[in-house]
Design a protein around this nucleic acid. Structure first.
Length: 424
RNA sequence: GUGGCUGUAGCUCAGUCGGUAGAGCUCCGGAUUGUGAUUCCGGCGGUCGUGGGUUCAAGCCCCAUCAGCCACCCCA
């Protein structure tokens, strides 16, 4: 097997068996976004490396060791996007979408990170991202969270996910807190695990969500970020919590909820599931008011989030929603193949909503019936010599226990229309 | 990147003490010459992940490597 050509590690094919569930998921997400008035934006998959260094942060793991970076033929350093926010901001700036206006945008597509693969974590993975620009108040923070809550309802996942919430404060608040935290931890440095010692220098806030027992014990009396929030950040966060309370969205405050990407501030949130092991974050987002300016634009408030589609698919597979079958009608024509093709075409003209599969290739009636059954079709239409001679079509119900019957070819479309109208 | 578990038919797996590979499902055909799903019978299907080593003999033991999974790291 390793001799044969295979896909790159961590980059998977989505096979026909899987793709219907993916489509089901994507259609529903897009429908919700559409109903909230969000518009799609499509960006390239490759960007200048500089974009990600400046947005995500030079000293993050993503930039330092997880990006797919290469030189193109001109010698420019390019990178396969590891996330969508940076590209989205770049595109908006480049085309003046943020000039004196408000935007509610979404995008979907593959992202690339060179991590060690595991179920729910891949080197090419897919995200649907949502970004909003130009709105500074907590109402838009609340809106995108309400949007995600509605989404879980429509996907049937509400019981599997929970919301965690925190505020990182303004960058000034965070700087003061970081100082206090570093001072606190430096006194207990011998109690910290090696990873946390490293974090202490690079990204001290990340020490907060360490899983090491010694470190957790050392953190017990650590300063709490909430006590460092300025009036503005505090009012913003209170506003968000009040909105969620009034809307009836449950959440859990998690003071240890921080971010790996540098550009977040104020609101951060995550939707987490317990059903996917360590890959439990299914949707994560927050506010990044500083990023647009950091990338050369005018200061612009912004909030957004991203969902990992692979993880959602894994959750959906656990409960397998009812998907539409491959075909509604399977047309069998053992003796005269063009008769089957032509009948199918006529039906597709008359009944554009129905999925009609016409048997092609060899096969006796029995074999064709088997395929009809496997297709999931509700009816097999039989059009052989007998039927052609009589000007009728044999209709065999494949679900349930109806008897086979004959319907005149001229009346067939109406007959089927009635069946599918009442049956669904 | 670190540590661990697992790789046998298209899929899910069994394979005893090291003695030259098996089941179920799928697929194809038949029982039923014009009828699926159920039942019965038959058939197709394998360089045991790959490369080395030990041995008279390796799916099984050893080493390496690749891949999947679990935890860490990180993160959607």
């Amino acid at each position: 097997m390793s001799q044969k050509l295979a896909s790159i590690r961590g980059m998977n094919d989505i096979l026909p068996e899987q793709s219907s569930l993916w489509q089901w998921l994507e259609v529903r997400i897009q429908s919700v976004l559409d109903r909230y008035g969000y518009q799609e934006i499509r960006m390239p998959i490759v960007e200048h490396t500089e974009l990600f260094k400046r947005s995500i942060g030079e000293v993050t793991d993503i930039v330092e060791k997880e990006m797919y970076t290469f030189n193109d033929r001109n010698g420019d350093s390019l990178t396969l996007r590891p996330e969508g926010t940076a590209s989205c901001v770049r595109a908006c700036e480049q085309h003046g979408l943020l000039y004196n206006q408000v935007q509610r945008l979404w995008y979907v597509g593959p992202m690339f990170r060179h991590e060690r693969p595991q179920a729910g974590r891949y080197r090419q993975f897919h995200q649907i991202g949502v970004e909003t620009f130009g709105m500074a108040g907590p109402d838009i923070d609340a809106e995108i969270i309400l949007l995600t809550a509605r989404l879980w309802r429509e996907l049937g996942l509400s019981s599997k996910v929970r919301l965690e919430l925190n505020s990182l404060g303004s960058s000034e608040d965070r700087a003061r807190y970081r100082e206090a935290l570093v001072a606190y931890l430096s006194e207990r440095i011998d109690q910290l695990d090696d990873d946390s010692k490293r974090r202490l220098e690079r990204n001290p806030l990340r020490v907060l969500d360490s899983k090491d027992v010694g470190t957790r014990a050392a953190l017990k009396d650590a300063p709490v970020l909430r006590d460092f929030l300025g009036d503005d950040a505090k009012a913003h966060f209170d506003g968000l919590c009040a909105a969620l309370d009034q809307a009836g969205v449950a959440y859990q405050l998690n003071p240890a909820l921080v971010r790996g990407l540098d550009y977040y501030g104020k609101t951060v949130f995550e939707w987490i599931t317990d059903d996917l092991g360590a890959q439990g974050t299914v949707c994560a987002g927050g506010r990044y008011d500083g990023l647009v300016e950091q990338l050369g634009g005018r200061a612009t408030p912004a909030v957004g989030f991203a969902m990992g589609l692979e993880r959602l698919v894994l959750l959906l597979e656990q409960q397998r929603p009812e998907l539409r079958p491959q075909a509604d009608i399977y047309v069998i024509a053992p003796d005269e193949k063009t008769a089957g093709l032509l009948l199918s075409e006529a039906l597709r003209d008359a009944l554009p909503e129905l999925k009609i599969q016409s048997h092609c290739g060899a096969g006796g009636l029995k074999a064709q019936m088997k395929k009809a059954d496997k297709s999931g079709a509700r009816f097999a239409l039989i059009l052989a010599e007998q039927e052609i001679a009589k000007g009728v079509v044999g209709i065999k119900p494949l679900r349930g226990n109806g008897e086979q019957q004959e319907v005149a070819q001229a009346a067939l479309a109406d007959w089927l229309a009635t069946q599918f109208a009442s049956g669904e």
